[in-house]
Amino acid sequence: MTIKILADSACDLSKKHYNEYNIEMVPLTVHLDEKEFKDGIEIEPKTVYDAMREGKMTKTSQVSPQTFKSIFTSYAKENQPLLYFAFSSELSGTYQTAKMMEQEVKEEYPDATLHVIDTKCASIGYGLVILHAAKLAKDGASAEEIIESTTYQAEHMEHIFTVDDLEYLYRGGRVSKTAAFVGSLLKIKPLLHVDDGKLIPLEKIRGSKKVLQRMIDVMEHRGADFKNQTIGISHGDDLQRAEQLASMIKEKFGAESVLIEMVGAVIGAHAGPGTIALFFSNKPNMNS
């Protein structure tokens, strides 16, 4: 029986990907105007970005325990193997909730092939990991093979990103108020990365034009074999700059496969409009 891959909406993949690779998606929740919306199902990212530009407050919440229990139970009942590769546990409590529900369901269905894995990844970095898992599942790989190979992909996935306004990261507790205020005044653009699932500031850059070039420099320093991997770019409603970055990457490294998607509503609610994120593997092949 083909193994089913489950992702959550923080992977920022499109419906086309879910359909093509038969991936099941569980949504996180976005809170806007005192209403709740299922990310990727009931609200478009652009709606969230427009609201943020108007100064509205947005919040997010993780997947409920009951939702996971219901999904896991339905697969266990049918004896259908299920692998859930989760959004970074350092950025959301969703992984921990899923782990608890995995234990509960396994008490009732001890023979269920059900595994919950923390990718320590986010946005299209996480999305590329999910696509890797789904392709292996489609090709008939075993649960052990998929977990081993996908975990390797996740461990080597680089996340390099910048935001347009530090205010949003300040609201989410990611930077200090002083840093946000000074950054806005001086038009400083922060460059951040994800290290072991956590958001870590890399450096501050003066002026937005220099940021994309600096991202390319970091990519050159950290990455490898760009021609034989898919590079990911996600953006907070700024397709023009995302495409500009993609052109620079193709020209500099001869990369042929670049996946561009909008940062989804949940991650976008924390990063804000104008976010540009770059994802690539620093060691694409397990044996290299």
Rank of each mutant, 00 (worst) to 15 (best):
A134W: 06
I160W: 00
L185P: 11
A180S: 15
A143H: 00
V182I: 14
Y168T: 13
R174V: 01
A143D: 04
D139I: 02
I160C: 09
V175W: 09
S149Y: 03
T178Q: 09
E148R: 14
L191R: 06
R171S: 03
A133K: 00
F161L: 15
S149R: 05
V194T: 09
I146S: 02
V163P: 01
R171F: 05
S184L: 13
V194L: 15
A154T: 07
R174N: 02
A137G: 10
A180V: 07
S176R: 00
T178N: 10
E145C: 04
I160N: 07
K187I: 03
V175R: 05
F181I: 08
E155K: 14
S176F: 01
I147S: 03
D164S: 15
T151N: 08
I147W: 01
A134R: 06
L192K: 11
F181V: 13
K135S: 02
A141S: 11
E145F: 08
K138T: 02
V194C: 15
H193K: 15
D165P: 00
E148K: 15
R171W: 04
F161R: 03
D165E: 08
T150Q: 03
A154Y: 12
A141E: 07
L192W: 12
S184D: 10
S184T: 12
A179N: 04
D165L: 07
Q153D: 09
A137Q: 03
E167G: 04
H156E: 11
L166S: 02
V182K: 13
E148Y: 11
L169F: 10
L186G: 08
D139S: 04
M157L: 06
E144S: 13
E167Y: 14
E148H: 13
V175G: 01
R171Y: 04
T151F: 12
E155Q: 14
D164L: 09
F181R: 14
A154F: 07
A154C: 10
A134S: 10
K135Q: 13
E148L: 14
E145R: 10
E144W: 03
E145Y: 08
L166A: 12
E145Q: 14
S149C: 03
D164V: 04
L191D: 04
T178F: 13
L136S: 00
G140A: 02
E158Q: 12
H193Y: 08
K189G: 01
H159W: 00
I160F: 02
K177Q: 04
I188L: 14
G183S: 05
V175L: 06
K177V: 01
R171L: 06
L136E: 00
H156A: 14
I188C: 07
G172K: 05
A179W: 14
R174H: 06
G172Q: 04
D165M: 04
G172L: 02
G140V: 00
K177P: 00
A134C: 10
E167M: 10
A133L: 02
G140M: 02
M157W: 09
M157A: 09
G183D: 07
S149W: 00
